[in-house]
């Protein structure tokens, strides 16, 4: 196949950046999208041109490192598929493909298609955990979890933190990401002691990072490679409202 690429090139965070066109001839339909970029890069290097920088690591759709807008949708046209798992057979000979980085002020561009998603880590650091240090927790079976709750928790916990939800959202909102962690832990008995403060802290951090608000358009859900649902956002809203209502100042002398 022969493909024409329009790729966002930006030297670094300070550079203005622009779309640059490349021809990509002789592409095998069995290549993954990233393998196609590898081939383009090998050719660029041979020609003495700077290769296109893009994040990637596991290339099996689980690490969440890769991610780019492919023809106007995060990770490209296939449902529930990361860029690394997208194959060129999803395109036709002669297709033009637009490739851009995630665009959000909370995800500043580092170079070309590489962005800084540190904001996600800070949201988790704000409360996306159960405060249980390594030590002597109760026996695993001492905490029974209804199968349905475990399954729903797992659905939410499947988030790979790739940022497609933010990239897809017309408001640059991180609600799907944040709510996936809130919901994962809210569905489990282990998450209950910190449930209220978790919702408050994580939403506060999410807002502080400069993500936009949710307007319930559902683009995030459609773009999510792990099919995290909007239901999680409703759950987080519910938890946040309740946590606001029952909030009390921590007592002095606490940990």
């Amino acid at each position: 196949m022969n493909i024409k690429l329009h790729v966002w090139r930006q030297k670094n965070g300070a550079d203005a950046g622009k779309i640059v066109d490349y021809d990509a001839p002789d592409i095998s339909p069995d290549m993954s999208f990233l393998e196609m970029l590898d081939v383009v890069n090998e050719r660029l290097i041979t020609k003495g041109e700077d290769p296109i920088a893009f994040d990637h690591d596991c290339r099996e759709g689980i690490c969440g490192m890769c991610g780019m807008m492919i023809n106007g949708t995060p990770h490209g046209p296939r449902k529930a598929t990361t860029a690394c798992q997208l194959h060129m057979r999803s395109f036709k000979d002669g297709d033009e493909i637009w490739i851009e980085p995630w665009r959000a002020s909370a995800f500043p561009v580092v170079k070309d298609l590489v962005v800084n998603r540190g904001a996600f880590d800070r949201i988790i650091a704000a409360g996306g955990f159960v405060s249980v240090p390594a030590g002597s927790p109760p026996d695993g079976n001492a905490i029974p979890v209804p199968k349905m709750n475990a399954d729903l928790a797992m659905d939410a916990a499947a988030c790979i933190g790739c940022g497609a939800c933010v990239a897809a959202c017309p408001n640059g909102s991180a609600m799907l990401f944040t709510s996936a962690k809130v919901a994962h832990l809210a569905r489990l008995p282990q998450g209950q002691p910190e449930r209220d403060t978790r919702a408050l802290r994580m939403v506060n951090q999410m807002d502080a990072e400069g993500f936009g608000g949710c307007t319930n358009v559902g683009e995030c859900e459609a773009a999510c490679p792990k099919e995290i649902t909007l239901e999680n956002i409703a759950l987080m809203n519910r938890d946040y409202i309740k946590a606001t209502a029952v909030y009390r100042k921590e007592r002095a002398g606490g940990d």
Binding site: F129, V130, V132, A134, G135, S136, P137, P138, D139, G140, N141, I143, P144, V145, P146, K147, A150, D151, A153, M154, A157, H184, L185, R187, L188, Q190, G191
Partner: peptide, 18 residues
Amino acid sequence: DQAVAMGVPFAREYGGTL
């Protein structure tokens, strides 16, 4: 035990056990 306490969503039986 540690992973369960941290909220790792292991697969469960209907009775709620691992």
